[in-house]
Computed example of a mutant assay.
Amino acid sequence: MRNWLFTLILIAVAVSAKAQSAGDKDQILAILQRQEADWNKGDIKSFMNGYWESDSLMFVGKAGITYGYKPTYEGYLKRYPDRATMGKLKFTFLNFSFPGAGVAFVVGKFHLTRPEKGDLEGHYTLLFKKIKGKWLIVCDHTSG
């Protein structure tokens, strides 16, 4: 019994350690930094590369829940039709955790500097999942 329990604990620690590797965190931060850069170039299409291209993608915003990659992309295009509306994006990371193997949870703030339209800011929570070896946003809840 003790050997079985010890083995189970070692497996849990190994899974936890793997889920929290610096490489995984660095990959996710690189995705978010690339998204910030893509946004600031006015390239929403490239910005969307951080999202899971699936009908199961979930985006929760002021208007409610949107399901699917294409409707999420179209929602961004509708809400941000031009560079003045898009402004300059700055992410601030507040919390980063790995609640399980292959899953990451990021909480942060965003700020859009928009001299012509008025600044916009709020918070976001992102659920990342490692799918086929690639970290992707599977759920995005953004306020603001």
Rank of each mutant, 00 (worst) to 15 (best):
M1Q: 03
M1I: 01
M1L: 04
W4P: 00
L8P: 00
L10I: 09
I11H: 00
A12G: 05
V15F: 12
S16D: 03
D24S: 09
D24Q: 06
K25L: 12
K25E: 15
Q27Y: 01
I28N: 10
A30L: 09
L32G: 00
L32H: 06
E36M: 13
A37D: 14
A37Y: 05
D38E: 10
W39I: 07
D43Q: 05
I44H: 07
F47S: 05
M48I: 06
M48P: 03
Y51C: 06
W52C: 04
W52I: 05
D55Q: 11
S56P: 00
L57Q: 11
L57A: 08
M58K: 15
M58V: 15
M58E: 15
V60S: 07
K62H: 04
T66V: 15
Y67L: 15
Y69P: 07
T72F: 12
K78C: 00
P81W: 11
R83G: 02
A84Q: 14
T85K: 13
G87W: 12
K88T: 14
K90S: 15
F91L: 15
G100L: 07
G100C: 01
A101I: 04
V103C: 05
F110W: 12
F110I: 11
F110D: 08
R114S: 10
D119S: 11
G122M: 10
H123N: 15
T125Q: 14
T125A: 15
L127C: 03
L127A: 06
K129I: 02
K130D: 12
K130Y: 10
G133F: 09
W135E: 05
L136C: 06
L136N: 03
C139V: 08
D140K: 07
S143Y: 02
